[in-house]
Computed example of a mutant assay.
Amino acid sequence: MKYKRILLKISGEALQNREKALNHDPEIMAMLAAQFKTMLEMGAEIAVVVGGGNIFRGLAGSQSGTNRTTGDYMGMLATVINSLAIQNALENEGIDTRVMTAITMRAIAEPFIRRKAVRHLEKGRVVIFGAGTGNPYFTTDSAAALRASEINADVLMKATKVDGIYTADPVKDPNATKFETITYQDALNKQLKVMDAAAFSLCMENDIPIVVFDFFKENGMVDVLTGVESGTRVTHA
C-alpha cells in the first residue's frame, strides 16, 4: 500500500441512478463495499465523508427560496441519510462500521469525537462522517479536509465522475487537458472547481495529499491505495 489511513470524499450524486430514479443504486453500493473489503484486507484504515446532493443541496435550495442556513442544515441531514445507506451496504458485506455525526443524533449515530474516531479506525472499522462540519456555509469538501486533518489521514481521496483534474470540464470542452500532478497553490490560483478553496487550503496547511480519481473506474480506489494512480495528485511540489 502507498497509504495506510485514507479519507474518501464521495458525492451523494455518485450513489444515485437517475435513470432508475434511485437515490442509492444497489449496484454502486455493492461496488463500493467490495472495494472497501479488499482495502481492509490489505490493512488499510478507511474513513468516509459523503455529500448529500442526491437528496438535497443547501445552495440550490437557497436559489429556490429556502433560507441558506436552513437549506445547509437540510443538506447536512441528507448526508446522514447517505451515511446510513453506506453503513448498511458495508455491513451487508460483513464490514464493521461506525457512523459519527457533527450534529448530535444519538439514536442513529455516535457524536463525532476525534479520539473515538481514531480508535475505531485502529480496530479496523470503517468510520463514516455525516452532517458535514455541523455548520452552515461549509461544503462537504471542507468537512473532508477537516476530518482528514483531525484523524491524520495519509491521503484524501476525492471521488469524481472523471479521471482527474482538467484545465476545463472535459465533458463540455474536448480540448481540456488533464493534470497528472498539480500543487495546492496552483489549484487555488487557477480556481479549479473540483474542490473548494477552503478544502485545498486546509490540506495544504496540513500537508495532506489529495488524489482526484474516477470513482466508476474498476478498482479505482484500490489503484489509488496501491499507487497505481490514474487520477491527479495534488501536493506541495
Rank of each mutant, 00 (worst) to 15 (best):
E218K: 14
G52T: 01
T160C: 02
A237D: 14
N175W: 01
Q35K: 12
K193A: 01
Y3G: 07
T139D: 06
V50P: 03
A198C: 05
A168M: 04
T101V: 12
I95R: 05
T235W: 04
E93L: 11
R5T: 07
V222F: 09
F216N: 01
R115T: 14
G164I: 02
L121E: 12
H236Y: 06
I6H: 13
D169R: 10
D169L: 07
A60M: 05
F215H: 03
R5C: 05
T139P: 03
Q35I: 11
M42N: 15
G43A: 13
E93M: 13
D169I: 06
S11L: 00
P209V: 10
P209L: 10
L84Y: 08
Y166H: 00
E180H: 04
E13R: 08
T66R: 08
V212C: 02
V212N: 00
V171Q: 08
A131F: 05
M204A: 14
N82I: 10
S230Y: 10
P174S: 01
L146M: 14
A34Y: 13
A131S: 14
A176W: 06
G65V: 12
A44E: 07
L15S: 07
K217S: 10
P174C: 00
T181V: 10
T232G: 07
E91N: 07
L7I: 04
P111N: 13
G53I: 02
R5H: 06
